[in-house]
Design a protein around this nucleic acid. Structure first.
Length: 576
DNA sequence: GCCGTTTTCGGCCCGACTGTTTTCAGTCG
């Protein structure tokens, strides 16, 4: 039986829910949630760690007890303690916790007083007016429950970062022009550069909050006002996106930005650090007693805690504070560090613009080199290139290069990795290219072992340069195919080839966790746009965002190298 | 349930908003 980290994490989260409804020690509940988080973030499979005899109690938030439960779940699929808890609290009840406004206490009341077991039973009870009769519930709460249940199916899922950007920018601009409003900043997961955004958190500086929250809830795109107070308001836009606004005075800006940017786990660690120093950190500042010792800037708060400023992309509670303490924060790669792009398409296959147009767009972006990598013949839907057409394109590129200055167009291909691990074009053709980007575009459902071996066999190919979109996922649409990324990363190190961070906002593939794994294994990553149009070159910023979340420095990224250095790095993989 | 150059026991982050509560509990982030 193979049990994945995510399944163990889900079991722990369920246990936390069940315990919470039962009214268990909240710190015990937190321990389960924290452990679940650790498992979800873990680059290695915990099953494999156990198989190798590694000690799980070295992991954050995993002690003897939870290590034992993990092993139990790995071998039996569940844990006796969780099963016992399920008997005491029906597992379906945890669904009630997902309804906004219902927490453990109210769910407990509903199940005990009205014997409610599921959202549909809750809906019935609310419609019959039975919910309002409970202590602590009232007419409004009952109506909110009904509204939430009705909206549940239509509930807005997390939106991709690229989708959220225009909403965020428009709202920030709207708030900035209000009189009395100083700085306005989108914080939260948006500022941390997460690939998807659950809701948008906006911070505004103003001497008084009320006038700002009043104007905020009056924003023309607001559909519902969820909360509206002196310093805080929450709305849902017509698009379904939820936006939270917080207004603070200037002297609290840094502390509030820190608090509102998160993540929650980063903030918790910072507050613990403050406590240890006899200080208190909240969104208004860092205080010793009633005296504010820092708060106007983020830097001031970090400095007072003995830390350098930590870039938002790292604030995930994944060791950044320890790294900061030790002076070992990475110097994160920046968009302007990119000297080239190694994955792009033209009209020859499924791109929208010509070779000349794409090259010119790349030159205008200041790139030193730009690889044309159209699809190979196997991808018939995309008019994939056969040898003849590819050789023709190579001649076109030679002619184009002769006319260009300041940029070199590289001859490449995005060649299909066939099911047997062979590449979709003959060696003698691939060998004439500057680089070979290879990708899986078919048979996504192979077993983990077969998929991994298929890709590793392709990497053994003498002309293989870069593995494109290594997991194949499409955010919100297609799960990654089942591969052992650590083995693939180690294979790349052995073969001295590279993996891609695909910058397309729907892909962002590798993930942040895998970027970091590659960095730790010493494998260089190429941040590529996979542009199918001139406009797509803009997507580089999303790839860089992902790279930064993966702790990558300039030196970890292949295409920050000069053209001369790049050629040297590509060469060993082309000869071998 | 975890964790430890103040601790192996006794801690475990902090505040705003809502609704039903006449002084605060529950929920959320």
């Amino acid at each position: 039986m193979t049990v994945r980290n995510a399944e163990v994490a889900t079991a722990f989260e369920e246990m936390a829910d069940l315990l919470e409804i039962e009214g268990a020690n909240p710190f015990r509940v937190r321990a389960y949630r924290f452990a679940a988080r650790t498992l979800r973030d873990l680059p290695a499979e915990v099953g494999e760690m156990v198989a190798k005899g590694e000690d799980l109690t070295g992991l954050p938030g995993i002690g003897d007890d939870l290590a034992g439960k993990i092993k139990e779940i790995l071998s039996t699929g569940t844990a006796a303690a969780i099963e016992a808890q399920r008997k005491r609290v029906p597992a379906t009840v945890t669904e009630l916790l997902r309804i906004p406004g219902l927490g453990p206490k109210r769910v407990k009341t509903l199940t005990q007083e009205l014997k409610i077991r599921s959202p549909s039973e809750l809906q019935k009870a609310a419609q019959e007016g039975r919910v309002r009769t409970l202590a602590g519930f009232g007419e409004k709460t009952e109506q909110h429950i009904l509204a939430a249940l009705a909206a549940r199916l239509a509930e807005a899922p997390r939106v991709k970062r690229a989708v959220a950007i225009p909403y965020a920018e428009a709202l920030v601009a709207y708030l900035e022009q209000l009189s009395g409003v100083g700085r306005v900043m989108a914080a939260g997961s948006y500022r941390r550069g997460l690939e998807t955004i659950g809701d948008l958190d906006i911070l505004a500086v103003a001497p008084a909050g009320r006038p700002v929250t009043d104007r905020f809830v009056a924003y023309q795109e607001v559909r519902d006002v969820l909360a509206h107070g002196e310093t805080k308001a929450s709305v849902r836009l017509q698009s379904g996106l939820q936006v939270d606004l917080r207004v603070v005075p200037q002297e609290s800006y840094g502390a509030a930005l820190l608090y509102f940017t998160g993540s929650k786990s980063h903030n918790v660690v910072l507050r613990q650090l403050a406590q240890q120093r006899g200080l208190k950190l909240n969104e208004y500042g860092l205080f010793r007693g009633d005296t504010r010792v820092a708060g106007e800037t983020e830097e001031s708060v970090y400095a007072a805690l003995g830390l350098p400023w930590i870039p938002p992309e790292l604030r995930e509670g994944r060791g950044e504070i320890e790294a900061a303490k030790a002076g070992r924060l990475p110097h994160l790669v920046d968009l302007h560090d990119l000297k080239g792009d190694l994955h792009a398409h033209t009209r020859a296959t499924d791109g929208r613009h010509s070779l000349q147009e794409m090259a010119e767009a790349a030159r205008l972006r200041g790139l030193q080199y730009f690889a044309i990598t159209d699809h190979s013949r196997r991808l018939t839907m995309a008019k994939g290139l056969d040898s003849t057409r590819l050789l023709q394109q190579m001649e076109d590129i030679d002619r184009l290069n002769a006319t260009l200055s300041g940029i070199t167009i590289l001859k490449g291909i995005e060649v299909d990795i066939l099911e047997d691990g062979n590449l979709d074009l003959p060696d003698n053709v691939l060998g004439r290219l500057d680089l070979v980007v290879a990708a899986v575009h078919s048979r996504f459902t192979l077993s983990k072992q077969k998929q991994t071996e298929r890709i590793m066999k392709a990497m053994d190919h003498p002309h293989f340069s870069i593995l494109a979109h290594p997991s194949g996922r499409l955010i919100g649409r297609r799960e990654p195919y089942d591969v052992d990324m650590l083995r693939i990363i180690r294979k790349a190190r052995e073969r001295r080839c590279f993996l891609e961070v695909n910058a397309h906002p729907e892909r962002l593939d590798l993930t942040d966790i895998h970027c970091r794994m590659a960095r730790e294994e010493g494998v260089l990553l190429a941040v590529n746009t996979d542009a199918h149009s001139m406009l797509d070159l803009e997507n580089a910023r999303f790839g860089i965002g992902q790279a930064r979340r993966g702790w990558l420095e300039k030196s970890d990224v292949l295409n920050t190298r000069s053209y001369a250095e790049l050629r040297k790095l590509l060469k060993p993989t082309m000869k071998a």
